[in-house]
Amino acid sequence: MHIVVCIKQVPDSAQIRVHPVTNTIMRQGVPAIVNPYDLFSLEEALRLKDIHGGRVTVITMGPPQAEAALRKCISFGADEAILVTDRAFAGADTLATSYALATAIAQIAKDQAVDMVFCGKQTIDGDTAQVGPGIAKRMDMQLLTYVSQVDSLDITSRTVQVQRRAEGGVQVLTTRLPCLVTMLEGTNEMRFATMDNMFRAARYQLKVWDRVAAGIEDVSKIGLKGSPTVVSKVFAPQAKTQRAEIIDSESGEPRDLALTLISKLFTQHPAMSEAVVKQSA
């Protein structure tokens, strides 16, 4: 089994603070982490390797600093890590990103055929959930998104069975390898890094590929040039100016405030009274 896991380095949103007055994001000193959704996929890949043997390769496209995210994955037990980095990738939208990653994965496959690719459900920064489906399409792999469980994997018949979250239920699907899977969050728990793997991660010589090493010849398909979408402007959401009607009562007692509010609610919004009474019944 050879499994490739795509990971992205992102700013830790739990530590992002919004400026209380200007409402802008305060990014200074926000640490970079492995996109949390990717860890569910990495853990699933490692689990499959534990059962079936083989190799797990992690790959990221990003700036040189993204190396830290790859080392983290090695410490969890990934075997190999590849950093695809080139100025030519700057400004990529999801179409250009999936092209670059799919080409790089095809390059990896020249070494050892790739049986499965794992992606996160989405990232916490770009947050589009489009890169996984894009890579699958470009590599002509079967796509299994929002997987809550990999039920079984049979290497001999090259089939896999999974449970996939749909809107109103769960689909049990079977498909053939190679396939691309995106795992749902909360479906497993990332293992602890062992001492050995932590040492290995620190010493590990990761592969750094530029555009050419990644096998990308056509620069018109990557970076800004390869991106159909363009950001035309960034602006603050239009603030609604209507301020709340503050409920007041003579006594100011909670009971009076509550009664005043309800009578306003029901007289000013006649449909409301009906809706509320109906609901409560």
Partner: peptide
């Protein structure tokens, strides 16, 4: 974008 504090307008020209 930017954690929701801003909006960005995207075109596919």
């Amino acid at each position: 974008t930017f954690g929701g504090s801003l909006l960005c307008t995207i075109l596919t020209l």
